[in-house]
Amino acid sequence: MSNVHVNASPIDVASLGRVAVLFGGTSAEREVSLMSGSGVLKALQSQGVDAFAFDPAERPLQELKAEGVSRCFIALHGRGGEDGTVQGALELLGIPYTGSGVMASSIAMDKVMTKRIWRFEGLPTPDWRMVGSVAECEHALVALGAPMIVKPAREGSSIGLSKVTDVSQCAAAYAAAAQHDPEVLCEQFIEGEETTCPVLTVEGEALALPVIRIVAPGGNYDYQNKYFTDEVKYLCPSQLDADEEAEIQRQVLRAFKTLGCRGWARADVMIRKTDRQPFLLEINTSPGMTGHSLVPMSAKAAGLSYEQLCVHLLASASLDQPA
């Protein structure tokens, strides 16, 4: 499975119609979305697609109808773009869109709901506590042990995330997360190697793409290192043992299917140092498409260029309730 090669059928770009690339938006990840969407728009136009930019922060979505849009490429990240709300609006407008539908998008954006479903289905994910105060955060540290990760339940790109090693740090960590979301997640920290694995639907079948191993300076894969430095090393091929890579791909595919995702996604997985057990952290249903992004890197290793990936994703646009 780790040596996956994507043989996507040729796509008639003229059949894709007029395309809106949705990017920008109002979430805390607006800056990243602008980078993702600009890259996607340029790639689609380079392949002859009739695509244009559409920022939902600046124009109401119902204008898509007046523009004669046939389908949308969603390059929005975070709330208001990746959480089922835009997907629901496009369902009502009857305009097919890339990525997961309303329910899967909504669940995947909520890390706690995601973990509850994964745990119920027997998928490995770190222990956690939901907290609503500094005192509860301190109790979570006792229950989960140090170090502990504190983060907003519904945010991405490591925004509002802190690593806590001592009870004295709980107040600041809780405040950093709570300013982005009243629901704060405290999660057991898994010491080990950080990996990520994209999933791409090809001719109706979900495929796990090659795993990427992430080596960040001091193990700190934060917002700055994700998008604005070249200090992080991304290993693809991952150089993991073949059986280990295959197991990560198997778990990620299960995670994708369990939530009812479609089109594409990318799951983050930690490999525990002590026993090499993989743990699913979260799944992104509208992954980044910037110059630092990981889905294009993995897709390239599987034989798909950035431009081919964008066209393939656009061709997969669909609705929960086809007209």
Score class of each variant (00 low, 15 high):
133 S>A: 01
117 I>M: 07
154 R>N: 09
123 L>D: 08
163 K>G: 01
153 A>W: 00
125 T>D: 08
154 R>V: 02
155 E>P: 11
152 P>M: 08
120 F>D: 12
145 G>P: 10
144 L>W: 06
134 V>P: 04
123 L>Y: 14
121 E>K: 12
162 S>V: 10
119 R>N: 00
117 I>L: 15
144 L>V: 10
120 F>W: 09
121 E>I: 04
124 P>D: 09
153 A>R: 01
122 G>V: 05
138 E>R: 12
121 E>D: 14
133 S>F: 04
138 E>M: 06
154 R>G: 01
130 M>S: 08
127 D>N: 09
133 S>Q: 10
118 W>L: 10
123 L>A: 00
142 V>N: 07
116 R>Y: 05
156 G>I: 07
130 M>G: 09
130 M>K: 08
139 H>A: 08
130 M>L: 12
124 P>R: 10
159 I>P: 04
138 E>I: 08
125 T>C: 13
163 K>W: 01
143 A>R: 08
143 A>Y: 13
125 T>N: 09
161 L>Q: 14
123 L>E: 13
137 C>A: 13
155 E>A: 13
124 P>E: 12
147 P>V: 02
160 G>L: 04
145 G>K: 05
135 A>T: 15
121 E>A: 15
161 L>Y: 10
135 A>M: 14
147 P>M: 04
150 V>A: 13
142 V>Y: 03
118 W>N: 14
146 A>S: 15
128 W>L: 12
149 I>N: 02
142 V>Q: 12
139 H>N: 09
123 L>R: 15
134 V>F: 10
125 T>G: 06
155 E>F: 09
123 L>W: 15
119 R>I: 00
143 A>Q: 12
159 I>V: 15
141 L>T: 07
158 S>C: 10
124 P>Q: 11
158 S>A: 13
128 W>V: 09
154 R>M: 07
153 A>F: 00
151 K>P: 00
144 L>A: 03
128 W>R: 02
160 G>P: 03
154 R>D: 07
153 A>Y: 01
130 M>R: 12
123 L>M: 11
153 A>D: 03
156 G>N: 07
